[in-house]
Design a binder for these strands. Structure first.
Lengths: 245, 245
DNA sequence: CGAACGCTTGATGGCCATCAATCTCTGTGG
DNA sequence: CCACAGAGATTGATGGCCATCAAGCGTTCG
């Protein structure tokens, strides 16, 4: 990162797993070319698009999703600051899903050339990036389990617990209290539920005094019982100790 | 591959996307160390296991899955000959899911050292391997959409269409007729359904003369209508033309 | 030959989708 | 400044999809 700048979300996230030197942090910065602001709701990459790019999300929230012909939508994952967009499908000729801005966001393109160069020069940075991609994959898999085999209540609880871990990791809030700009429609599309049913689930969780999601803020009131309910095991997040010191 | 041997499933699969030279095919062979036979039902990697390895599946069918504490199981993906096992989570300290043999299988470990060496010496081979991993990811994502937003019938149809493409790719059967050793329990765990309901769905598909799955054989009777029903779009399989000639 | 496994069918009920309506809040233009 | 539109949240009513319980069948294998 540049001298004097506060650490970016991405460097904060990667540093939690691989201790990066000043040179490596500068190389990480070097990956980022032109910064581009995007308005809420706008699409960055459209499913089926050729020559798609990868990005780093510097600020704001985005989501990756697929739309079916009958109009229903499945959100695959949300991206928070510090996350990569589209890195895992960079090798496919056409993007296998779409990306859209949830809030106003700021992304910067990752140039393929500088990525390869950085990997060649800094194996530790390469490790950190691959780790991040692997973690994202593990989250998609857990998301699959969530939808396939958990009830609506468990699913919802699980989702907010995972999100809490992610937000704490990048220093935006804590595991039990964080800002969340998603609408109930976003959530229901991620959880494979109708927005109406999700609303009832949220009410139940509130009434059981487990967690509250209102006005863009998540407050987990009883984390222990919520974890129990969701059968949440954070092992797959792989964040309990640094990978490389 | 060794002189005179028939092409392995993995080389057949990768060759469909990246034209590999004799040297590169030999490097691919060099990744494979000791061949290990595994009995049906046996687990190869157990969720949470540290120091897990990656494998190439030479013959037979395997599956990757997660088990919840309440005993229900979610199959993430099935692996057919030529597929990699555990490659995408190699960087995580603990495996995020389990692998088990469906039929009797033969796997060989991928040595990390030889993998890195092969990547350094043969960028084309590296591209081919990354492509395969990316395609597998795209399949997991599509699987997520399948479970989240398609009805049981659509889901089931989609599953068999995808599988047909995969089997045809490795030259074991055609897109509309192939052997499939999975039980209805395997299938229901993959599709997030009860085995009983899946059974009824299969009957309906049979009665509608769209497809038959019986005695270990899948026969797609009316592929066009099945594709329509499932809203199947094979774009995400990224196999409509070679990546590198 | 019995046990185990896999497949099949019937009956019942619950979870969750869908339709419909209301309410709040915010932003916008007249 | 207010009327209005639109997005988001909320609640009620109804019904269908699919889970679950229960039972029986065929096949394989020890």
């Amino acid at each position: 990162m540049s001298l004097g700048n506060p650490p970016s979300a991405v460097s904060k996230k990667l540093s939690a797993f691989v201790a990066l030197s000043g040179d490596e942090l500068r190389a990480l910065d070097g990956l980022q070319s032109a910064v581009r602001p995007i308005a809420p709701g706008e699409q960055i990459v459209i499913e089926g698009q050729a020559n798609h790019q990868a990005f780093i999300l510097n600020g704001g929230w985005a989501c990756s999703f697929k739309v079916l012909r009958n109009g229903s939508r499945q959100v695959v994952d949300f991206q928070v600051p510090g996350d990569f967009l589209g890195l895992r499908s960079l090798l496919l000729r056409k993007s296998d899903h779409s990306f859209a801005a949830v809030t106003a966001i700021e992304v910067c393109e990752i140039s393929k050339a500088s990525l390869l160069e950085a990997f060649a020069n800094s194996p530790r940075l390469a490790t950190a990036v691959f780790w991040a991609v692997s973690r994202d994959e593990a989250m998609v898999v857990e998301h699959l389990v969530n939808i396939g085999r958990r009830s609506a209540t468990e699913r919802t609880a699980h989702f907010f617990l995972e999100l809490g871990d992610r937000m704490a990791l990048i220093g935006q809030g804590t595991r039990t209290a964080y800002a969340c700009p998603l609408t109930q429609y976003h959530l229901s599309d991620a959880l494979g539920l109708s927005a109406i049913h999700l609303n009832r689930i949220l009410r139940q969780l509130r009434e059981k005094k487990l967690m509250v999601f209102q006005k863009g803020v998540v407050t987990i009131t009883n984390r222990k019982r919520l974890i129990e309910l969701a059968q949440f095991d954070d092992e797959y997040m792989d964040e309990n100790e640094p990978l490389l010191r």
